[in-house]
C-alpha cells in the first residue's frame, strides 16, 4: 500500500543501484560482534544494498560548504563538580550479571 509513496521518493531521484560484495556482511557483522546465520547473509546483503541505494539520493545535494550538525541543542557542554557522589554499591552493579564471582564479572578467558 505504500508503494506509490516509495515510487515517489525513488523515481524523483537518480538512484545508482548498489551492490555489496560478499565479504561486506561478514566483515561488518564481525565488527559489530553479531553472529549471522550463513543462510541469512545473502538476504541481508540485498537489504543493505537496497537501503544504501535509497540513501544514495543524498548525493544529489551539494553539501561541500555545510558544517555537519552533531547536536541540535544550542547550549554548551555542562560541567559537573569533582565530587564523589556515586559508586560503593557493587551489589547494584553486579545484580544483573549473568556470571559473577566475589564481586567480579566473569567472562570466557581472554588471552592477551
Amino acid at each position: 500500500m505504500l508503494l506509490p509513496l516509495q515510487q515517489l521518493f525513488v523515481t524523483r531521484l537518480v538512484i545508482t543501484p548498489m551492490t555489496i560484495d560478499k565479504d561486506t556482511i561478514p566483515r561488518i557483522a564481525r565488527l559489530a560482534r553479531l553472529e549471522i546465520a550463513p543462510e541469512r547473509q545473502s538476504a541481508l546483503s540485498e537489504e543493505l544494498a537496497s537501503i544504501l541505494s535509497w540513501v544514495e539520493q543524498l548525493n544529489a545535494l551539494d553539501t561541500s560548504a555545510v558544517e555537519p550538525l552533531a547536536s541540535v541543542t544550542g547550549h554548551d557542554l555542562p560541567l559537573r563538580d569533582d565530587i564523589v557522589t556515586d559508586g560503593n554499591d557493587p551489589d547494584a552493579v553486579l545484580s544483573n550479571a549473568p556470571e559473577k564471582t566475589s564481586n567480579f564479572f566473569v567472562v570466557p578467558k581472554v588471552v592477551e
Partner: peptide, 22 residues
Amino acid sequence: QAKLFSGSSAAFGAGPNEHVSL
C-alpha cells in the same frame, strides 16, 4: 577525586567493582 564522566571515586585500592557507578 571522581571519574571523568561519573561521580564514582577515581581512587586506587578499592575492592572489586566498588568504585563503579551505573
